[in-house]
Design a protein around this nucleic acid. Structure first.
Lengths: 193, 193
DNA sequence: GTCTATATTCCGATAGAC
DNA sequence: GTCTATCGGAATATAGAC
C-alpha cells in the first residue's frame, strides 16, 4: 500500500467520522486529503472501493488498540480485563470516535443494504465470543449459553451507549459508568443461576 | 393536517423503512404515495421538511401503540407492565419495523447532524423516565438515581437489540429473550442495592 | 390542489495534459 | 502519479397550465 493511499484512507476515516459513510463526498475527501478527485479514482476504483478499504482500514486500527496492552505488566484480574475490554470502546479520543462512528454507520447502513450484513455478522460474532470468554473467567461455573446471552447483551448495550454518546445524548463518563453498572448487573444475574 | 399530507407522510414512513432517511428520494416517495413530486413540494417546503414531519409523525404513532392497552382488563403486575412496555418495540409487525427503522435512522443521522439532536434528546428522556417509573413500581425501595441508571441501560440496550434485529444479526424471538434476561439482571442488580 | 414539463444543482466519474 | 477541466446522470426543486 502506497503512502498516498494511506494518506487518503486516513482522510477518509476523518470524513466518515464527520459526515458518515453515506455523507462522504469524493470531492470533500479530496480536499481533506489535499489531493485531486482524479487521484482518488486512480488509487481506488470508485467511491465504493474507497468505502470498502476505509472500513477495512478502520477495522485493523480497532484491533490494534483493542489488543495493545501492558508495557510492563501488573496482571489484570478477570473482572478488570472484562471491564477494560468493554470500556476501551467508550473513550473520547479521535481514534475511538472515528471507529465507533464508522461502526454505527455500518450497522445502520446494513439495515438497508444486504451486502454489508455478512461482514457485520462475522465481526459481531467474534466480538461477542471474546466477551463471553472473559465473562467465563469471572464466573467459571456458569453454563456457556448463559455466558453467551450476557455477552450479547453487554455488546448490544455498548453499541446503544456508543450511539447515544456520539449523537450527543449522554457524556462519555456517564456512558462508562452505565457500562460498569451493566457488568455488575449481569454478574449479579449470572450468580443467581 | 390535510388527508393528502397524511397520505404522503404514511408513504414516507414506508419508504424510510425500506431505504433509510438518507436513502429517501422524493421521486420514489411520490410514486409510493401515488402523487407527483410537485405536490410534495407544495405540501412540504422541501425534502428536509418532509423528513422533519415524517419523524414527528412516526413519533406520534409510536406513542399511540405504546399506550393502547386492555380492551377488557386483566390488570398487569408492575413487572408484566415493564416487560410489556419494553417488548412492544420488539415485534415483527410492519408498524414496529417502520418505527424502529426510522428511530435507528434518526439516531444514526443525529451523529452527523446537529439539528436532529434536540428532538432526539427530548424523546429519549421521556422514554427513559417512563421506564424508570415502571422499574420503581417493581422495586419501590430503590433510590431514583439507581432506577434512572437501570432505565437508561434498558432503553439503550433495546436500541442496540433493535439495530441487530433490523440489520439481520439476530432473530426477533432471540432479541425478546435477551431483553427479558436484561430485565431480570437489572432487577437482580437493584435488589442488591 | 394537482399535474406535466423543465430548470437547476450536485456529484460521481473520466479525458487528456504534464 | 497527479492535476485541471469537464461530462453525464441523477436528484432536488420550480414554472406554469388546468
Amino acid at each position: 500500500m502506497s503512502s498516498r493511499s494511506t494518506q487518503i484512507l486516513e482522510a477518509a476515516a476523518r470524513v466518515i467520522a464527520r459526515r458518515g459513510v453515506r455523507g462522504l463526498r469524493v470531492e470533500e475527501l479530496a480536499a481533506e486529503a489535499g489531493v485531486s478527485t482524479a487521484l482518488i479514482y486512480y488509487h481506488f476504483k470508485d467511491r465504493t472501493g474507497v468505502l470498502r478499504q476505509t472500513l477495512e482500514f478502520i477495522n485493523d486500527r480497532a484491533e490494534r488498540y483493542t489488543t495493545d496492552r501492558d508495557p510492563d505488566d501488573p496482571p489484570l484480574t478477570p473482572l478488570e480485563e472484562l471491564e477494560e475490554t468493554l470500556l476501551l470502546e467508550l473513550q473520547d479520543t479521535v481514534e475511538v470516535r472515528e471507529n465507533s462512528s464508522a461502526w454505527g454507520e455500518l450497522r445502520a447502513s446494513a439495515v438497508f443494504d444486504e451486502v454489508l450484513r455478512e461482514d457485520l455478522a462475522r465481526a459481531t460474532l467474534v466480538w461477542v465470543q471474546e466477551v463471553a470468554a472473559l465473562l467465563g473467567q469471572v464466573r467459571p461455573m456458569v453454563p456457556a449459553s448463559a455466558l453467551a446471552a450476557a455477552a450479547e447483551r453487554l455488546t448490544a448495550l455498548l453499541e446503544g451507549l456508543s450511539m447515544r454518546w456520539l449523537s450527543g445524548g449522554i457524556k462519555i463518563d456517564h456512558a462508562r459508568e452505565l457500562m460498569r453498572g451493566a457488568v455488575d448487573a449481569e454478574l449479579a444475574g449470572l450468580e443467581r443461576a
